[in-house]
Amino acid sequence: MKIVIVPSGFKECLDAEEVAAAMERGVKRFDPSIDAVVIPMIDGGEGFVRTIINIKGGSIIHKEVTGPVGQKISSYFGLYKENGQRIAVIEMAAVAGLKLVPRNERNPLKTTTYGVGELIIAALDFEVDHILIGCGDSGTSDGGAGMAEALGVQFLNKEQQKVHIKGGEDLLAVDSLTTANIDGRLKNVSIDVACNWKNILCGEKGVARVFGPQKGANSEQVEALSSALEHYAGVIQEGTGLDVRSLPGSGASGGLGAGLLAFTNAVLHPRFDIIMDFINIEKEISTADMVFTAEGSLDFQTPNGKIPSEVARIAKTSHIPVIAITGTIGEGADLNYQTGIDAYSSIIQKPVSLEMAMENAPKWIEESTYSALRKVAIGWRMTNKGVLKKVPV
C-alpha cells in the first residue's frame, strides 16, 4: 500500500516538514510496511526559503532588518545559482510574519513591511538577476508601503512632508508619492511573487475585512484599515497610473502584493503554480492508494488555492481518496468536500488552551493520522463483507 503525505505547515506552530514527519509516524504506527511518500509543501509562508534552498542547494544569508513592530530582528533570505543566474528567495513571513508580532501587539494598523524592502535591497547588493518572493503568514496590512519606503519611494502629506509608514493607519496621512529615489537596480531584476491569487486589496472582500481579524484587528480597526487601504490605492493610482484595488493577488500578505505590483514591476502568480515548478507531486499522487494532507485551520478559505484543496484537486484527476488532518475546523469547512477532500478531522479532541494545543501538536497529528487509518480499515473490512456499499471518491 502506498500513501502520499502532502501537508502544509501549522501556522505559528509547526512547519510543513514537522507536520509531515508526525503524519508519517502515524502511518508507520498503523503499519510499518506501508510505502509512505513524504512531500512537505510550502505555500509562500513559513518555510518557503529553506525548502527551496534545500532543493536548489543554495545558501542562507542572514541579515538584521526591521521587524513588523519596528524592532530590529535577525532575518534571512536564500541565494542560489541556476542557468548562469543568481537568484534570491525572500520569505515575507521571516521578516514581517504574524509569528514575529507579539500577541499583545497584534494590530495591523501598527505593523510594517519595511523589513521586506530591506531584504530586497540586501539581495540587490549580491547582484542578483532574479528575486522570488513568497507571500504568506503575514502579520502586516500596510499595503506594502513600508517595503516601498525602504526601496526609496517617498510618501508625502498635504504639506509635502515625508510620511514614515509604521503601519496601515499611516496610509491615511499620505497625500501623494514619488518614485524618483527608488533603487535603480530594480529595473534590471525580474521579480516573481508566489501569493494567494484570490486576495484583493479593497472592497467587501478586501484584505482588511477578510484577514484583519486574524491579525488582531477589532471591528472598528478593520473599518479604519479598509478606509486606509482604499485611500492608499487612490494615491497609487494618481502617482503611478495603476489601479491596484481589485487586481488578483493585490491583497496578498496585507496588500504587499499591491506594493510589489506598483513599485517593483513584479509579476504575481498563484502560489501553488510557482511551487509546482520546484516540487513535482503529480506523479507520486497518481500512483498512490491514498493521500493525506494537512493545514492548521480548515475552513471556507481553504478552497481558495490553499495546499489541501490543490492537493485534493490533483488527486481527484486519478480518483485517489484524500484525508485532511487539521488543527481547527472553522466556518464553512464542508466546502472542502467540493474540492476533492473526502474526509477531514481535527487533532483537538477536547477543550484545551492554545498553548497546550501547540505543545502537543506533533503527538496529536500522529495520533489523528493513526486513528484515520484505523477508521479506513474498518470501512474496508465492512465493504468487503458486504455490510457497506463502496463509497465513491
Rank of each mutant, 00 (worst) to 15 (best):
H130M: 09
T111E: 02
T178L: 06
E127F: 14
T113Y: 00
D170R: 09
I191A: 03
E223T: 13
Q160A: 14
V210E: 07
V189I: 13
D175L: 11
G206F: 14
G115K: 00
Q161N: 15
Y114Q: 07
H231E: 03
I191V: 07
D183C: 08
R209S: 09
I200H: 08
I191L: 05
D192T: 12
F155H: 10
E220K: 15
C135A: 11
D125F: 07
A122R: 00
G212E: 06
F126W: 12
W197C: 09
H231C: 05
Y114V: 03
E220Q: 14
L124E: 08
K162W: 13
S219R: 15
A123H: 04
L225T: 02
L225R: 00
S138F: 00
S138P: 13
I200M: 11
G143H: 01
S141A: 11
G168W: 00
H130S: 08
L229W: 12
G234S: 09
R185Y: 08
T111Y: 03
L172P: 12
Q160W: 07
E127I: 10
A194G: 11
P213W: 05
V222Q: 01
T179R: 13
L132T: 14
N218F: 03
I133V: 07
H130F: 11
N181F: 13
Q160F: 09
K166C: 15
V153G: 11
A148E: 01
H130D: 07
F211E: 12
I133F: 03
G134A: 08
N181R: 06
S176W: 11
G117R: 10
F155V: 00
G206A: 08
D175V: 11
D142T: 04
L156K: 15
A123P: 03
F126G: 14
C195D: 02
A233M: 12
L119G: 05
L225K: 01
G212P: 06
G212W: 04
D125K: 14
D129R: 09
Y114E: 09
D137P: 12
N199P: 05
V174D: 00
L156M: 06
V210W: 01
K187V: 01
C135D: 02
K215R: 11
A228K: 12
I182R: 11
Y114P: 00
A150P: 09
E204Q: 13
T112H: 05
E169C: 11
S141R: 00
L156S: 10
Q160Y: 13
D137F: 06
D175C: 07
C202G: 04
Q214A: 07
G216A: 09
L172K: 10
E127A: 14
K205N: 15
H130A: 04
G134S: 03
N199A: 14
G216E: 08
D192V: 15
L229V: 04
A208S: 13
A150K: 02
K162G: 03
V207A: 13
G136C: 10
L109G: 10
I191S: 04
T112S: 14
G206R: 04
L201H: 01
G136M: 01
E204L: 15
C135L: 15
S227C: 12
G144E: 01
Q161H: 07
A173S: 14
M147C: 02
L177N: 03
G206W: 00
A173C: 10
I191K: 06
V207R: 01
S138G: 03
G152Y: 04
G134L: 04
L172F: 08
L225M: 05
G167M: 08
E159K: 15
G139L: 06
A228F: 00
